[in-house]
Design a protein around this nucleic acid. Sequence first.
DNA 1: TTGTAAGCGTTATCAT
DNA 2: ATGATAACGCTTACAA
Lengths: 358, 358
Amino acid sequence: MAPARRTSDLRGVEQPRARKVTTHDVAKRAGVSQPTVSLVLSKNVRARVSAETRERVLRAAEELGYVPNVVARSLVRSRSYAIGVIVPDLRNPFFAEVVSGAERVASEEGYAVLLCETREIPRERHMQALLERQVDGIMVDAVGAASMPEPMLAGVNLVLIDEPPDRWPGVASDAVGAGRLAAEHLLSLGHTKFGFLGPATNIHAIRMRERGFVAALAAKGIRMTSASMRRVPATAAGGQVGMHALLALPERPTAVFCSNDLVAAGALKVCSLEKVRVPDEMSIVGCDDIELASLLIPSLTTIAIPARELGARAARLLLQGLTASASEQKVANRPQRTIASRLVVRGTTAPPRSENKG
Amino acid sequence: MAPARRTSDLRGVEQPRARKVTTHDVAKRAGVSQPTVSLVLSKNVRARVSAETRERVLRAAEELGYVPNVVARSLVRSRSYAIGVIVPDLRNPFFAEVVSGAERVASEEGYAVLLCETREIPRERHMQALLERQVDGIMVDAVGAASMPEPMLAGVNLVLIDEPPDRWPGVASDAVGAGRLAAEHLLSLGHTKFGFLGPATNIHAIRMRERGFVAALAAKGIRMTSASMRRVPATAAGGQVGMHALLALPERPTAVFCSNDLVAAGALKVCSLEKVRVPDEMSIVGCDDIELASLLIPSLTTIAIPARELGARAARLLLQGLTASASEQKVANRPQRTIASRLVVRGTTAPPRSENKG
DNA sequence: TTGTAAGCGTTATCAT
DNA sequence: ATGATAACGCTTACAA
C-alpha cells in the first residue's frame, strides 16, 4: 500500500497541490480501461470507439480537470514536440524578431520553443541541454553552427539561419545583396569616398554584407582603403567609436555603410554631436531595418532584412522536415533558401556636398 | 524479438540516425547493471559506487557518446527542469530584456526556458501548453495573469512580473514611482501645462505609471484636462498620433509624459516633423530606458526600468521556490518585491520657453 | 469496440 | 557496493 504521494508543495498558496489526474483516474470514473481513455483523448483519427464511450470519457476527463502529460507521451513516442532556437543575443531587436517569428509558427503547430542565448552561455552547452531534452529540432541563428563539435551535430534536425550554406538546410537573407544595394544606392547619389563600419567577426551574414559592399564598389573601380574600413563591435557603441575614427581621417568619406542599424545609429549620433550634418556632409546607410531605423531623426536609410520572416520560414522548414513522410522529404531537403534584401531610402542619404564643408 | 527500431529518419543528411544510446547500452559495455550506470551518471552525491566501476561506467558512456534522456528523468521525478515565460510581445525591447534576464538565470541553473508570446496566440492556450509539458514553474509578464481561468492557475508555480500584487509571488518595477519621478522632474523645470500619452489598457504597470504621474501633479494642485490625456497604443505609431493631437490643442502642453519609450520616440518624431523644437518648445519624458532612448537625437529623458533585472529576479524567485525545502519556504513567500525606478535626464527636457514660441 | 500487456529510459527502493 | 524490480503516465500492438 503506497502512501499517498506527498508532492512537495512549494507554492505560495495554501492548499496542497492535488495529485495530478491521469488517464487511469479518468478511466476509473468513466468505467472503461485506461488505454481506451488514451484512445479517445489522443484524438487518434483512426481510433474506433463508440460514440457513447467517447462521450463518457470526455465528460469524465472534463469533470476531473484532466491535463495530458506530454512528458509521458514524449517518452513513448520519442518525440518531444519541442524545438530549440539558439541566437546570439535577444537584446538585438533583429534576433528578437527572428525568435518571435519562429515562436509564432511553432506555437501554432503545437510545438514548444526552448530559447537559448549564447551571449553569456556557450552554444555547446545550450546544444547539449537541448539534445538531452530530446527536442525534435533546433534552429541556429548566426552563432557559427558549423564550427561546433561534430558528434554534437550528428543526427540532429538542424535548420540554420543566416549561416554559411552547409550540409544542413537553412534560410538566409541575401547579405551580399544587402551590401551591394547599399553600395549602388550611394554610388547612384554620386559618392566616391566611402567608409565601412562593422565587426571583424566570423558571423557569416555580417561578413557577407561587407563583402557585397566592397565588391560592388570594386566593380566600379573603387577600392576602399583599409583606414576607411573600421573594425568595431556591431553595436551602437561600436558605431560611435567607428564614426569618430572616420571623421578624424585626413580624407574623410562622404558616405558610410554600417553592418547593422545599431552601428548606424551610433554613427549618426556622433555626427550629430560633432555637428557633421547628415545627410548633407555625411550619408549613412544601415542594415536590418529594425524599428529604431524609422524612429531616428533623420530616419535611417537602410537595407531591410525580413527578420521575422526569416524566423518563421526557418520554423516552417524545420517542422516540415519533422512531419514529412519519406516521400515528401525532397521538399525539406532543398537547402538554403534565401530571402531578398530591400533598399529603404529615408533621410540619412543624399548626394555628397563635401565641397561646401568647413 | 523486437525488430530493430526504424527511427524514421527525417534529416537532411544521409546516414540514418543511430538509435539513441541508453543507460542499458552503457551498462552492457561497462559490464554493470543499468541502475548502477544511472547511479554514477546522475551524479547523485550520496551515490556510493567504487571508484573503479565509476571509472568504467564513465568511460563506456564517453565512448558510446551517451546523452542522458531528460524526458525519461522528468517522467519518473515529476520535474521537467523547464520553466515557461509568457510575455506580450518580444518585439518590444523591454520584454526582450526581461526574457533575456530570465533566460540567463534559468540556463545557468540548468533549466530550459519555454518562450510564449501572447501577441498572436491567447495566453490561455500558452498556459495550457506549458501545463501539459509539466513545466516546473511559469513567469508571467504583463498579460493580466489574474484574469485567467481559476482552475488553470491552481497548483501552478507562478511568479508574476509587473502584474498587480495578488496571491502569487512576483517582482515589479515601481511604476507609480516612475510616473511620479517624471512629474517631479518636469515640475522642477517649471512646467505647468502637461500632456500624457498612453494606452487605455489593463496592463497594470502602464496604468500605474499614468496614475503616479497624475497623482504627483495633483499633489501640486495641477489637474490634467481629459483632452491632454491622449489614449493611444503603446507603440511609436501611437506616440505619433498622440503628439499630433496634443499639438493641435488650443492650450498646447509644454511637457508630455509617455507611457513608454516607443511612444516617446513617436512623439519626438512628430515634433521634429512639425518643427516643434525639443526640448525648447516641448519637453518629452519616456519610460523604460530601452537602448533606443539613448540613440535618439536629442537623446531621450526617461525613467529607467531595470527590465533585465526584473526578469533575472523573477527567475531566481521562481527557481528558489522550486528547490527550497519546506523550512526555507518563507524566503520565497515574501511576495511582490519591487525594484526602484530611476530618472535619467537627457536631452528632451528643459524649462518651458513657450512664450518665445512663434 | 474494448481490454490486456508490453514498453519508452529513467530514478528509487529495496535486497543481496 | 551493486543488482533486481517496480514505478512514472502514456501509446500501441494484439487479443478478446
